[in-house]
Amino acid sequence: MDQLGQLGINLGYLLVQITNFAIIFFVLRIWVYVPLVKVLEDRRERIAKGLEDARIAAEARENAEAEAEKIMTEARSKAAAEAREVTVRAEAQAKDIRAAAEAEAGKAREKALADVEAERNRLLGDVRGQVAGLAVAAAQKLIGEALDTNRQRALIDEFFSGVKAGKVTVLPDAGKLTGDGAVVTSALPLTKSEEEAVQNDILKTLGGKGKVDFKVDPRILGGLVVRVGDKVLDGSVSGQLNELRQNLR
């Protein structure tokens, strides 16, 4: 015992220290450890519960999302189908409308063109008399003496109409002609009598039936261009001038 005392070990102090430690142990157990463990377990439980709740919520949300997705898909396909139908209908309608409008426009344009042509023909018809007068005056000036005015006029008429003594000048050269109708182009509008003469002559050549259309094109300068089917009989001044040019070259 004395040697233990030399080390400082003393039974009384040892007991005091053990008691002291026991007191601290039990007091801390009541004050700290029991509440702490309870708090920790509560917290753990709450975290576990929170996780479970979150899992359930996530599941519910996933379900809801899937549902929503399905509904959305359905709605989208329905809407797409409707839209397609509407588009088709609208396109059809638009096509109809466009066609109607185009027809209308075409009609209007044709009418306008016809009007314009009629107007032009009228104007050219007016011009024809003046051109003849001018031509006669120019010839008198050139030749220096007065020609027979009537004869002169007849010549000019013949020049323009390509009709000589009731016959269309180009027709005999063409030989046999067949067709349902003819298109006659003149440099200036023909008079009624001339038109009749041309028509009669052509119809006679063709065999008495068919329709003759008259057109005006100042570019051919004079004479007539007769088209029957796919054949063109060029009795125009411009055609003759071209031929002359080819020959002279």
Partner: peptide
């Protein structure tokens, strides 16, 4: 050391009763 530990323990006990988790 006991006093320090007991003070810590007491403050912990008091605040853990107040804080309720």
């Amino acid at each position: 050391a006991d006093i320090i530990l007991l003070l810590i323990g007491f403050s912990f006990w008091r605040s853990s009763r107040k804080s309720e988790g």
